[in-house]
Design a protein around this nucleic acid. Structure first.
Length: 236
DNA sequence: AACAGTTTCAACCGCTTTATC
DNA sequence: AGATAAAGCGGTTGAAACTGT
């Protein structure tokens, strides 16, 4: 792809596209209810994909990109909205510690959640809390604290309720043991494993399962614990 | 009640990757 | 093989909602 040369082909294409969008009076900003209805109805009849033609054929004055984003992040029937459960929070932390800011990849492990939502969660909650602890969220210290000390503690607290759930052989399983011990392996997420069957996709889908034990990773109790941990580490 | 500061999250942007011709 | 279009990704922004004074 020729993107490095000054005044590249791609840049010219983008300029042209922007010009065309302007010419056509493309709408931007929040979607109106009528626009949502048009998009939903169009996709119900014609299906997803070919977003530029969706925008054009449905009579929406929106870019294909905008239609795609609106559908994937908001209008899609299987999209889950609202509070991120404790299990999801733990899974996000675990996956992020291994994959970094690969939001889309992480989102694939959380049914119904979008990359955008996970990214927002990370930026607004995790980074904020790390700041409170005077930690850099990408520092080894923060990651190790989460992974080797805090998460085992949380999992321990969750386990009694988790184990009450039926194992889901087809679902995702977080290998508690492997993910919490130093490892270079990227295989902690597998399908159909039963190392720790209580913690799987099924559990994530069941609203509130285990969540009544803890509402959030960032409650007072946990924050005190983390602050103490952070202090202890600094004293070393 | 009014205002200021903070938080949240939907939407946009720029870039890269993938698909198609 | 190269050009172009479309899709996808991660970072960023800004308006609305919320909270504190």
């Amino acid at each position: 792809m020729d993107v490095k040369k000054g005044g590249s082909v791609v840049q010219a294409q983008v300029k042209l596209q922007k010009h065309n969008e302007k010419e056509m009076g493309m709408r931007k900003g929040p979607w109106a209810v009528e626009e949502d209805t048009i998009l939903v109805n169009y996709i119900a009849t014609h299906g997803e994909g070919h977003w530029n033609s969706v925008a054009r054929c449905a009579g929406l004055r929106r870019s294909g990109k905008s239609c795609r984003l609106r559908w994937l992040n908001y209008l899609r029937p299987d999209v889950r909205r609202g509070n991120i459960t404790l299990q999801e929070q733990i899974l996000i932390l675990d996956l992020h510690s291994r994959w970094g800011n690969r939001w889309s990849k992480i989102a694939q492990q959380l049914p119904g959640r979008t990359d955008n939502e996970i990214k927002n969660y990370w930026r607004t909650r995790v980074i904020k809390q790390a700041k409170q602890l005077k930690c850099d969220v990408n520092s080894k210290q923060f990651r190790d604290t989460l992974r080797y000390v805090w998460m085992p503690r949380l999992l321990e607290r969750l386990q009694p309720t988790s184990q009450a759930l039926e194992p889901n052989q087809s679902g995702l399983v977080l290998h508690a043991s492997s993910s919490l011990l130093p490892s270079n392996s990227d295989h902690s997420i597998e399908r159909g494993s039963d190392l720790w069957p209580g913690f799987n996709n099924q559990m994530l889908l069941e609203q509130g399962s285990g969540g009544d034990l803890l509402e959030s990773l960032w409650d007072d109790d946990n924050m005190c614990f983390l602050q103490q941990l952070s202090y202890d580490l600094q004293m070393k």
